[in-house]
Design a protein around this nucleic acid. Structure first.
Lengths: 152, 152
DNA sequence: CTTAGTGCAAAGCTTTTGCAATCCC
DNA sequence: GGGATTGCAAAAGCTTTGCACTAAG
């Protein structure tokens, strides 16, 4: 998570002005690992910035992605999610509760090189998504099964 | 690409009726490797099935994915794409022309197991997307640069 | 004959856009 | 002070839904 000073420098370096709204969106995003949607960030910011609008959140997220302060995720929901961690890392999404977590410790650089040689593309980015059931929901499922067995 | 007979069996096995529209959508999808969007399939089918509606295409694609005859892709566009190849394989998307190709020959099963052990999730599915510039667009870019040099 | 599916139009959502008022530099 | 940015409301797209009609089994 970068400090306001560094964010300011990066925005200015790309020709963007620095506004309280932009800093607020960046910090709200950088503070969490929940990979929020624009709407969620907006709801979080509204109490602190009562005049903030959802359109501004969207415009700001677009700029943050463009200058490399965030990345956009697409786990297959109706809405995009955003991540202030722009390092190359996979994400994993729980099919039961919908949470999205980072996966750290997987090496993906080899994959990108392989993809380039398989396809002839010049490969510049990648996204890896896993789907399944998170630890909390697995436990819940086990408890549900146990409960059902008692009933029968 | 499965025959109509096999598709019929699979739909029936899941309690779905078999209609000309459903077979048509499946075959239109299975015939191509372009990973079309719903709208594209609809436009392709309209001449042959003049009463086909876009809503039916969407509903049918939903069913095809549910019964395992197709999968949904999300390369980060405004619309979903669909693929009748349901084997686990990555996709690569050209940032210039937007085409989406299959990547074959990458082994991903190890990755899935690693992700499970890193996160504690039970991992059931995965999607891998690469982004870059396709061979045709790379050549075009080279030609454009050469042209520019002549002008100066 | 019964029930599911189709097709149309309208609604629902997320995201973008136009524009006057405001703020950064 | 000048030009970018904000915030509002409306628009734009994709996808879903409600419902009368039709077709599958």
């Amino acid at each position: 998570m970068l400090q306001a000073k560094e964010v300011t420098q990066i925005l200015r370096a790309h020709g963007y002005k620095v506004t309280p709204q932009r800093l607020a969106v960046y910090h709200a995003l950088a503070r969490t690992t929940a990979h929020p949607q624009a709407e969620t960030l907006y709801a979080e910011l509204l109490p602190l910035y009562p005049t903030m609008s959802l359109a501004t959140v969207y415009k700001t997220l677009g700029i943050l992605c463009e200058v490399g302060l965030a990345q956009e995720l697409n786990v297959g929901e109706d809405a995009y999610r955003y991540d202030a961690n722009t390092a190359l890392h996979p994400h994993i999404c729980c099919r039961v509760c919908g949470r999205v977590d980072d996966v750290s410790g997987l090496s993906l650089t080899g994959l990108q090189r392989e993809a380039a040689s398989c396809t002839g593309y010049e490969v510049t980015e990648q996204q890896v998504y896993f789907y399944g059931v998170c630890p909390a929901c697995r436990e819940q499922e086990l408890r549900d099964e146990a409960g059902q067995r008692k009933v029968h």
